[in-house]
């Protein structure tokens, strides 16, 4: 695995109600291509802020985010939009699918924001979307609307959409946050499949320990910093939980 994502001295300060909150306190991080990284930690530990900064969603107060050696925060709005569109596939816990579009159109939606989407491209995209949905066992639901899908099915559609532009990074924030255990395992298996079959770099934010079984790298965060050289990540995560 070669070096792929790198952050240097990453800081993020929020100003909430006149108070400074340091969400990230100088993060140095390297993620290799094809890695399957799960960020864990308590609420407010800064894991989502870190991931959103890597994904080009939150501008850091200080430091750099290098993807393949390029600092993404030196890009302008258009370039950054293009970067998000082509390099990253996003998945969110909720508000993920547009209710007015059917499954197929939801999946191809990122493509409409790409510069070139002619008739030929449109047909190719639809074929690709159907192929992805088939791979995720959703072919029968191609014409369904989000309201007609279960939570697990909605996740599968969101995964297909994240893959449609063939991005190198899949970034998911609490992708199984509101799912039952069985469905959560199914979704995690899909992520494993994506990591293995499509060679995508996965960056997941989650509170769920179920991910620990499948992740290649686990990063635990606390108070805007990364716990390094953990002998037992679970212990680190659990540290402080239910203790005074």
């Amino acid at each position: 695995m070669s070096e792929f994502i790198e952050t240097k001295g990453l800081k993020k300060i929020y100003h909430v109600g006149g108070q400074k909150v340091e969400a990230l306190q100088g993060i140095d991080l390297e993620i290799a291509r094809g890695d399957f990284v799960v960020f864990m930690g308590h609420s407010g530990s800064g894991k989502t802020t870190l991931v959103s900064t890597i994904g080009g969603l939150t501008r850091p107060t200080e430091g750099t985010v290098l993807i393949e050696g390029n600092d993404i925060w030196k890009l302008n709005d258009k370039q950054l939009s293009h970067f998000r569109n082509r390099k990253i596939g996003f998945m969110f816990q909720s508000f993920s699918l547009l209710p007015t579009l059917n499954v197929l159109n939801n999946v191809v939606m990122p493509a409409i924001f790409s510069a070139n989407s002619g008739k030929k491209d449109s047909d190719t995209l639809k074929s690709k979307a159907i192929s992805l949905l088939t791979d995720l066992d959703m072919k029968r639901k191609v014409n369904s609307f989000p309201s007609e899908l279960s939570g697990g099915e909605q996740r599968r559609v969101a995964i297909a959409r994240a893959l449609i532009n063939d991005p190198e990074i899949i970034l998911a924030d609490e992708p199984t946050g509101d799912l039952d255990i069985r469905t959560e395992r199914e979704v995690i298996d899909i992520f494993c499949h994506i990591n293995n079959a499509y060679q995508k770099t996965l960056i997941i934010v989650s509170h769920s320990l179920t991910w620990l079984e499948k992740a290649k790298t686990i990063i635990v965060m606390k108070d805007g910093l990364i716990f390094k050289d953990l002998a037992d990540p679970v212990e680190a995560i659990m540290d402080g939980v239910c203790k005074p």
Binding site: K78, S81, R84, F90, F95, S96, L98, R161
Partner: peptide, 16 residues
């Protein structure tokens, strides 16, 4: 607003 955020996240530019 959340829908707008999602569209931006998947690559919609300000102009789009």
């Amino acid at each position: 607003i959340r829908e707008i955020g999602m569209l931006k996240a998947i690559g919609a530019s300000r102009f789009q």
